[in-house]
Each structure stands twice: as structure tokens, then as C-alpha cells.
Design a protein around this nucleic acid. Structure first.
Lengths: 250, 250
DNA sequence: CGATTGTTTGAGTATGGTCAACCCTCGTGG
DNA sequence: CCACGAGGGTTGACCATACTCAAACAATCG
């Protein structure tokens, strides 16, 4: 089990008014002032650090400003299942905020910057800003939708389809948040994590990824993969793609 | 593919004030009057009927008053993955209400009675009743949590553990909503559905269930199973059980 | 009493798992 | 500048879990 504690940064680089994610669509909110007050600070986290632990009661709720995380659950004998990945704009720890105890852990895949919110402020937000409340429910619902897709994959797709689907899925999401600075989308996820996401062994995952490489659909380099042909990946996986609708932030 | 259309019942048997689910804890809401107005009618659905179809845009949101449903997704070649089951008190179609298009289908496992709400009324609910809005988010979050557990199961548990886990899980939920009229909890789910939930073939599911029967953990009868020893099921599955906290309705 | 739907069983196969090396790259320290 | 070690990635051999096919059986319902 990897994961040390991250370190907190007292300084606050961004007010929500000039959040680096603002260029994204659907961030035109009058609620900005409120969110800005709701935001309690920022947290810088090292790669490999554990942000939230299963079983704990966190007083905070986070938003990803930059970096990648993954959510996972463990079985008592150590088997790990990765549930989903979070990238900039995603909420972290909503489940825990609403229901008390965290039922999954969250770990940083890369150095990250998180925005910190107080769990206690949530009811207040619901009282004073129904639009934001609605957005939060929307976000929770979208997470549910992603889990649905994942379940379909793991339950009913073959190893090759699963791998193709996961990579196409992540790459599509990354594109949607504008992480494609360099033209080919880079996915910084080691094969062990891919395996724990797909419900496969490391060895078989490796062989499967190799097949995708031989078909020239992806390319592996420097501990992560680059997508060569997203369309053919989707086709191979029989995946319809992300439905493109509005997406609220915070 | 089974599933015909259900039939609608214009009559309205229950006002929310004397909802048959009222005896459940955490239903002491001042919002009752509002919910009662929010409720647009009731819908009686036959066993096997399709309540909502993937790809459609439903104007309604439902609540289960009685009966069982399941949510599922299909791959283009017909492979089916069942995502979760709904029982009395659960919301149906929230995802579709928030995001427009349904991304999964819903089918009745038994004759059911649903409460019908207008999708358009949702923003109004958020504006005027933050407490209810919070409850809805809570419910969405709980669904997410259940999906997390499911993913862990399908991704990382063996067939035997998976089956044990699913049955223990459903039986625990059924107990929580008070469906244990008769002492042993009865789960009215055919083996084909169990298979499609666990990501296994029908044949292997049957052999697995048989093992659970031989161990005297469950008992199969009349197209459904009865739980004999929930504790040993949980132990076998390495499953911690449902966390018991408040549960809002509607 | 057939028809239908759901469950059971066996035989043979295939997908994916385990074990055990080996290899490559990169960062550290002599 | 090179040796070393650690973390990932790669490969082959062998094994096991789960799948497919096929057939039979049981219960239920007009």
C-alpha cells in the first residue's frame, strides 16, 4: 500500500474569481461570491499521498484544481478495486460529507492542488443557493452514471474491450476538461492501477495493453499511455462515448 | 428481451400523509404538504414491464411505493449488466431528470405501485425546500455508494463471494425497509438476473448458488431465494454490512 | 396436457490467473 | 562515470475459474 500524507499549503493562490478552470463553459455563476466564501483554503498534495481514508470522518470536501486522483476500496485481504478517477473540476468526498463515514479512499496520482470546503457549510449552501445545490446533485448523479458505465464494463466486457473502454473513457473526459495541452492525450496511470480498475491481474492487463499497442490504438511511454485512435478504441469497446451536456463546476 | 408496457392507474390511492411507508423512521417531515403537491399521481406497473428506457427523455421521476425493480444497461450485442435493484422508498429516474436522457433502463421484477413526480418541478423543490433537496442528494449519494460496493464485488470477488455478497446485500436492504413480513427474507430474483448482476453466465451462477445451498446459507424456492444465514454469507463475502444511518424518504 | 419459463447437469473449451524470471529506465551515491 | 537498486513493464509456462453447448428436468399456466 503506497501513500503518505500530503502537505498543506496555507497560502491561497486563487480566489474563485480567477480560478484556472474558469475558461471552461458553464462557469458563469452569480454564486461565485458565495463559493469564494465557502472555500476555506487550498491543499497541495504529493503524488501517491492519501487524501481521504475509508472509515474516516472528514470535516472537508474538496474540489480538484489540478492533478489526478483515484477512488478505491479494499477487501480485508488486500484486493483493491479502483472505482473511478477524478480530474480538475471534480468533487472529492461528497459521499463522506453527506453520510458521515468515508466508504472509500482517495489517493493522488500526481502532485495536486485541491480547493478545500467545510462540510458543515453544506446545509447552508443548500438553504441559500439552490442553484449550487442543484449543481451538486447533478455532479453526484454524473458520478453515478460513470459508475454505471464502469459496472457494465467490468461485468460484461472482455478484457480487451474493457481496456479499450477505460482508456477511451478517461481520454474523453480529459479532453472535456481541456487537459489536452499537447495534442495526444496522456494518461498518467501505471498498469497496476489499470489492472485494479478493470478487475484483471497485472500480467493479463499488460498482455491486453500490448494488444492495443499492436493494433496501433494506443502507445505506452514513460509510465502512462497516449491515445492514438480514440474512435477505434470506442468502436472496439462498443462504447457510445460521453454524452455532451452542460457541466456545472462547484 | 422481456418487458411490455405497464398500465397507468388514474386513481390515487394514497396521499403522502398516509403513505404505507410512513411507519419507517426518518419520515417526519414538515415538507409533507409540499411533497403531496409535488406528487402527480400513481402508476401501477406489471411484472416484467419496462418503466424507463435507455435513450428516452422521461418527463417523470418516480418513487417506489411497493414492488421491486432493477436498473440495467445493454451492450449493442445484447449483453446485459444489471446495475442495482430498487425497493420501496427508492427514487427511480433521478439521473434522467437531472441530465436529460436516460442512460439505463428500468424494469419491474414484480407488480409495482409507483408515485409519479414531474421532472420540471425539481428546480422548484430545490428553491423552496432545501431540506428535501438535501435528501435527494443524499439518496443519489447512497446510490453511488451501493454502486461502489457492486464494483468492488464484480471486480475483485470470486464467483462464490460475489453471490454471497449480493444476496446478503439485498437481504440487508430489504430488512431495512421492513420487507421481512415473513421471517425469512425472500428475494424474488430469478437466476438469470443474478447472473447478469454478478457478471457471470447463467450456468456458472447456478452452480455457485447450489454451493451456497449445500452450505445451508440460502435456500432456493419458487423462483427466488430465501436467506438462511445472513451472517455467514457476509463473512464468506468479506462484506462489512450496511452502515446504519438515517435514511430520508422522498 | 402441451407450452413456457426457469433450473440443473455434464463435457469440453477458453479466458484470464499465478508463478517466476527477466528487462528497462531512471535516480542515487561512490 | 559507472555501479546499484527500485519501480515498472514484459514474457513464457502452466493452471483454474468460468464460459459455451447441449440436453434434461421441474413447475406453472392456460
Amino acid at each position: 500500500m503506497p501513500g503518505q500524507n500530503g502537505r498543506s499549503s496555507p497560502s491561497r493562490r486563487y480566489s474563485c474569481g480567477n480560478c484556472p478552470l474558469r475558461p471552461l463553459p458553464a462557469f458563469e455563476k452569480q454564486e461565485l461570491v458565495f463559493v469564494d466564501a465557502f472555500k476555506k483554503g487550498e491543499l497541495a498534495v504529493d503524488k501517491g499521498a492519501t487524501v481521504l481514508v475509508e472509515g474516516s470522518h472528514s470535516a472537508h470536501l474538496y474540489t480538484v484544481q489540478s492533478g489526478w486522483t483515484f477512488r478505491y476500496k479494499l477487501l480485508s485481504d488486500g484486493r483493491r478495486q479502483i472505482l473511478n478517477y477524478s480530474m480538475p473540476g471534480d468533487l472529492i468526498g461528497l459521499q463522506g460529507s453527506l453520510m458521515g463515514e468515508m466508504q472509500h479512499s482517495v489517493e493522488a496520482l500526481s502532485p495536486m492542488l485541491l480547493c478545500v470546503f467545510e462540510r458543515e457549510a453544506l446545509p447552508d449552501l443548500y438553504r441559500s443557493h439552490p442553484g449550487l445545490a442543484y449543481d451538486i446533485t447533478w455532479i453526484a448523479s454524473r458520478e453515478e452514471r460513470m459508475l454505471d458505465e464502469n459496472l457494465l464494463s467490468i461485468g460484461r466486457r472482455t478484457a480487451l474491450e474493457r481496456a479499450a473502454c477505460l482508456i477511451a473513457f478517461i481520454s474523453s473526459r480529459a479532453k472535456a476538461v481541456g487537459l489536452n495541452g499537447g495534442t495526444p492525450v496522456r494518461i498518467p496511470i501505471p498498469q497496476q492501477h489499470i489492472a485494479d480498475t478493470l478487475g484483471l491481474s497485472l500480467v493479463h492487463t499488460n498482455k491486453t495493453i500490448r494488444k492495443l499497442m499492436n493494433r496501433k490504438l494506443i502507445f505506452w511511454r514513460g509510465g502512462g499511455c497516449e491515445v492514438v485512435d480514440n474512435e477505434r478504441l470506442k468502436e472496439l469497446a462498443r462504447w457510445e462515448g460521453l454524452s455532451e451536456d452542460r457541466r456545472p463546476l462547484i
